[in-house]
Design a protein around this nucleic acid. Sequence first.
DNA 1: TATTACGATTGATAAAAGTCAATCATAGAT
DNA 2: ATCTATGATTGACTTTTATCAATCGTAATA
Lengths: 232, 232
Amino acid sequence: MPDSAYGDIRKLDLFAQMADENFTGLMRGAYVQNFPSQIELITEGDPSDFLHVLVSGAVDLFSTWNGRETSMATIRPISTFILAATVKDAPYLMSARTLEKSRVALIPSQDVRAAFDLDGNFARAIVTELAQCYRSVIKSQKDLKLRTSLERLANYLLRQQRHAGGGSVFELEFEKRRLASVLGMTPENLSRAFKGLQPYGVTVAGTRITIEDHNELKRFAKPNRLIDDHQS
Amino acid sequence: MPDSAYGDIRKLDLFAQMADENFTGLMRGAYVQNFPSQIELITEGDPSDFLHVLVSGAVDLFSTWNGRETSMATIRPISTFILAATVKDAPYLMSARTLEKSRVALIPSQDVRAAFDLDGNFARAIVTELAQCYRSVIKSQKDLKLRTSLERLANYLLRQQRHAGGGSVFELEFEKRRLASVLGMTPENLSRAFKGLQPYGVTVAGTRITIEDHNELKRFAKPNRLIDDHQS
DNA sequence: TATTACGATTGATAAAAGTCAATCATAGAT
DNA sequence: ATCTATGATTGACTTTTATCAATCGTAATA
């Protein structure tokens, strides 16, 4: 594995507190690979042979059933994905595909499980990471079950605005069809939902969003830290 | 804490591999309490002061937003709940209420975090538990995003049938209004959904369900282990 | 036994969301 | 600069789901 990726990975919360020898041991069996855009890295149902670490690029986690497909989450560097399947030695529940040219480190799952039995700090870091993941999905579940698609979009825009620095003009982080899928609606409905937010001062030009009056949108969206706060 | 509950809790996967002294230390600050039905044990947003262990009875985890409420999961003995909030020392994302007379052990969260720093086996058990919880929510998320309410009900009935032993006649495990909420629909729609499954051999009398032809229903429901298998 | 309260069901209607087909806009490719 | 492929948008329509109001059924209570 190249030194650059090695250092970046070492800095991840997940690995930062590991004993040197355990981290080195873990990395010994790992390798880094470059993938073009739109490559399926993981297929749901497959055994979880590797823990994946996205070093650069972007990855979409999605699932399918009965000919339908839905986007579950987007992974941005530097972070791991499919950790739960790895530690449980169970099949992947989601598929993963690159959204752009990406660099991924692959760590054999059995090495991860071995390190986790060996290194208490690593085990503790995994706990924190998994608890974080769990809480994220719960928030997303609440978003889906408690809000209409218009409300979900409104809150997404507020989150994204904050994430982009808080200015009244910002860019969507991914293409609309995938945003629609993430938000649990069709692309057609997303288009209509954007129109539905015009009365609250939202205007759209391609991927550029303008929120005229933040407070006006907020009054409609009613953001809630127990759903929308992507920290805690 | 009474010996009976102590022993039952000790047997939980979460605590089974802990060093004796750590478990004893953890239980020193814990206490068991009896609650009548319909008591709110936890309110979302509150700091996570205690890890809860349901010793007997049943507990509903639910969330609210903007005057709406949805049931997220049902806890049956013996298991813990709100583990993620405890280990992250973050506010509860869900509220909890007893569905019947229940016995709950309360373990101070700071003791849990201390034990988790001290005891590698405990940390590892928490990992397994959290990974399990995470995967459950992901499955539920897929169920919600990929299926119509009729399909969700059909698959729920197949799961419940299996859970009840596989016979063609079985009982629903909770009242219909709560089942509706768990499945992400209104009680009115649940009624209609049951009717919609009649052509596939499903009949309902109160809480008693009859599935005439398991395979017929299965052909419609298309159950999938990556969504419906509540083990792995 | 009659009463009452509450959940379940039904019907009518409205709102939300999905589908299908056509068109538009735009970024790359030629 | 033009062509082309793909995603976005729009309109018409259907399906799904929610809402509201009324009624039914049943189990607990008086």
